[in-house]
Design a protein around this nucleic acid. Structure first.
Length: 760
DNA sequence: ACGAATTTGATTTTT
DNA sequence: TCAAATTCGT
């Protein structure tokens, strides 16, 4: 009991001790929010609240699993339900979906799947799109759903041609989705909100079941999420929201900052706690952030403070162009690493748009500095993975026409465009699914004998897969891969790319096996559960945090993270307030928050920069410094003009921040290296061929994933000796990237790999 | 049905 | 500029 409150400040303690009634935790950056939330859950359980009655909702899987783990370590053995909003929505719809006309075995379409459906509908309904792209139309539908405007409620506005299109296509799209027993991401929330609204008994039942609801990042909730939360907090109004209006950066995705601004109005008896002490950044960094964000109007007054040291002044540099900017930063990072003051992983470079990473990447590569980009390329989104999963989806839900489309002719089996067209017509005419239409392939007019036969054997395969559904997922996917001829086609292809596709498919099989093992232990397995995971959990959720590499990412991706040294680049008009956002006040404020979020990620050092000339879409253009720079305490910034050649930034001996080691800064020149810097010794420490010999004998002995560490020399029976260059995840999810002497770089899921530490 | 050629259009992207 | 998406040609 006492231990729970140890090392908490006054405000944190207040939040942790709050039990009944609504609670709003306004948590500034670096204020120990997660600690407060997890400790509060532990405290609730100590007060006799049953763990089944607690529901914690997050936006990302990463946040959910972090919270889950931290609660677990505080109160072992207690099963609190921590979930993303969308997974929660999916779970509710599996139970109560019939109330909104949804079959329980529904499929969840990702963005590209639902875009596919939309295009179909636009075509089938012969809707004049008047030059609006499907993406644009989909965006409008999504926005409507986020605002909880249903297809029936949607009304076209006279002044908006786009809304006229939406008014036509939205109902048709929604009908098509329901027919296919499918939902898109937005539906997961909208359907739940709607069923809670229309079914008072269900609402009451769930309100009772989830007595204590916690929400993370409340500033990012949209209307649908707001309504869900509200509905779960009528009879038991114990909603605890944590968030920070100043970090609301997803307005463009439907997040409504009003939710957090008006929480107190929505829940009159709310207890408000402000977490204002920052444990992350130096005073100078915090001051810059604070002064900038003070220019926003839609916010809650907070006064951030820190006991940390003053630290170095925040630097603002003007470079001549982007290559000098990137080169200067890369060189500085290289020097700090080489001088031993910093590790590569201490550094992060943030930018507004992905396109800005290019020059930075080039410069880092030239300087021989290892880096990683947090990318959006997700494992389950890869073509081959989606292809294989489509068979499973269809076996699970025979109405899933998108899955049919995707799988019916991949690998190619002689069912071409013409046959599909006839099939479509038939299905449309008789109102059946494509799969059911295919069952009657031989009686469809115009269908060639060849195509009909192919279709019938395809249907047979799907039926067989469906009959396996109660088996292990591994068996299901294994069957698909073999009997569909998918792996055969890849094996026989000479294409290099197909080779890696094959590997990915094998990784999928491994992933399925891992899922089977886990569900054996904890229950809740089966094909549908597995599919749901592929739809709602993407692999980028655990990127390699342990890798000793410089991190490059967009500002949006930085939320929740921190780095000792941060470079914020391209602070230019039209880029950081982005040109598409700066016209309206609302948009401009969000851009400012984006800058605020970026700045407050920095622990010890922050450098902001802009250039005078930027190459943009092929055009060289004069760049104007961001207006945000004028809103910062300029007299406290260390301003540097990189035109002068002999600058010595660290000539003065600044107070170094806080408890940290006082390190010596190299006196770095800002001018760009004239010749490429020497490459890092990547292959250093590799095992010799002699050490390899013993490797194979360890092949089947189990090794705990925890024995592996960064930089460790390892041996693989197939690929030989290598060195671990990156590590991520923990337990059975622990993954490693290995640089092999002979076989290049490869990634492994450690529990399943044959990777072993090298002996000797 | 595939690869080449060309057209287009271009923030951010938790799910 | 440049990459993705569509169309074209075989």
């Amino acid at each position: 009991m006492t231990s729970l409150l140890e090392n908490l400040n006054e405000a944190q303690r207040e939040a942790v001790l709050h039990v009944d009634g609504p609670l709003l935790i306004l948590a500034g950056p670096g204020s120990g929010k997660t600690r407060v939330v997890t400790h509060r859950v532990a405290h609730l359980l100590e007060q006799g609240v049953r763990s089944r009655q607690v529901l914690a909702l997050t936006f990302t899987n990463k946040a959910a699993s972090e919270m889950r783990n931290r609660i677990q370590s505080l109160v072992p053995g207690e099963a609190v339900w921590v979930s993303t909003f969308h997974r929660f929505g999916a779970r509710m719809l599996r139970e109560h979906g019939e109330l909104v006309g949804l079959a329980p075995n529904f499929t969840i379409y990702d963005t590209s799947d639902s875009r596919q459906v939309l295009k179909r509908v636009l075509e089938a309904e012969r809707i004049h799109v008047m030059g609006y792209s499907p993406d644009r139309i989909a965006g409008a539908i999504s926005a409507a759903k986020n605002k909880l405007i249903t297809a029936d409620d949607y009304k076209a506005r006279r002044d908006s041609p786009l809304s006229e299109i939406v008014a036509q296509v939205y109902p048709a799209y929604q009908q098509r989705m329901l027919q296919s027993a499918a939902v898109d991401f937005d539906d997961l929330l909208m359907h739940v909100a709607s069923l809670l609204y229309h079914n008072p008994e269900v609402r009451a039942q769930l309100d009772d079941r989830f007595r204590y609801v916690l929400v993370d990042e409340y500033q990012d909730t949209n209307k649908a999420q707001y309504v869900i939360l509200k509905a779960l907090s009528v009879d038991h109004p114990n909603l605890a929201a944590t968030g920070d209006p100043d970090q609301s950066i997803y307005g463009w995705r439907g997040a409504d900052i009003t939710n957090i601004l008006e929480f107190e109005r929505d829940f009159p008896q709310v207890h408000v706690v402000r977490l204002e002490q920052n444990y992350r950044s130096t005073k100078s960094i915090l001051r810059v952030a604070d002064e900038l964000i003070a220019h926003n109007t839609r916010r809650k007054q907070k006064s951030l403070f820190t006991d940390n040291g003053e630290g170095r002044p925040v630097r603002l540099i003007a470079y001549a162009d982007q290559d000098l900017e990137a080169g200067g930063i890369a060189e500085e990072i290289r020097a700090a690493i080489e001088g031993g003051q910093r590790r590569a992983s201490d550094f992060a470079v943030f930018y507004r748009t992905n396109a800005l990473s290019r020059s930075m990447e080039r410069a880092l590569r030239a300087a021989g500095v290892p880096y990683q980009m947090v990318r959006g390329q997700e494992f389950y989104g890869r073509k081959e993975i989606k292809d294989v999963l489509a068979y499973c989806q269809l076996a699970n839900n025979s109405h899933d026409d998108v899955a049919f489309d995707r799988s019916v002719n991949s690998p190619t089996r002689g069912v071409g465009k013409k046959s599909i067209e006839r099939l479509n017509l038939h299905a449309y005419r008789y109102g059946t699914s494509l799969l059911d239409a295919a069952r009657q392939a031989d009686s469809i007019e115009g269908m060639t004998k060849r195509a009909a036969n192919s279709l019938l054997s395809y249907v047979k395969l799907i039926d067989e897969v469906a009959s396996l559904a109660s088996d292990s997922v591994e068996a299901v996917i294994g069957t698909v891969i073999e009997k569909s001829g998918y792996s055969k086609a890849l094996r026989e292809s000479g294409d290099e790319e197909d080779q890696s596709r094959l590997e990915n498919i094998e990784e999928l099989l491994t992933d399925a096996r891992q899922f089977d093992e886990q569900s054996e232990e904890f229950g809740d397995g089966g094909l549908e559960a597995y599919l749901e995971r592929t739809w709602l959990v993407n692999e980028t959720d655990d990127w390699e945090t342990e890798a000793d590499k410089v991190t490059l990412m967009t500002l949006h991706a930085t939320k929740g993270l921190e780095f000792p040294v941060v470079y914020l680049i391209a602070l230019e008009d039209g880029i950081l307030p982005h040109e598409r956002s700066r016209d309206n006040a609302e948009g401009l404020e969000e851009e400012r928050r984006l800058a605020f979020v970026g700045i407050t990620r920095a622990k010890e050092q922050l450098q902001m920069s802009y250039v005078r000339m930027r190459e943009y879409r092929g055009q060289r253009r004069m760049a104007i410094p961001s207006s945000f720079l004028m809103e910062m305490p300029r007299e406290q910034l260390e301003m540097v003009d990189a035109r002068s050649d002999d600058l010595d930034f660290y000539a003065d001996d600044y107070d170094t921040y806080g408890v940290d080691e006082q390190y010596e800064e190299p006196s770095t020149q800002i001018d760009v290296p004239k010749s490429p810097a020497p490459k890092l010794p990547v292959a250093a420490g590799l095992t010799t061929a002699a050490q390899l010999a013993g490797g194979k004998s360890t092949k089947h002995s189990k090794v705990s994933p925890d024995v592996f560490s960064l930089g460790m020399t390892v041996v693989h029976p197939e690929f030989g000796p290598g060195k671990i260059t990156a590590l991520g995840g923990s337990g059975s999810a622990r993954k490693a990237t290995v640089q092999f002497a002979a076989a290049g770089e490869r990634r492994f899921v450690l529990v399943h790999s044959q990777l072993r530490p090298a002996q000797g």
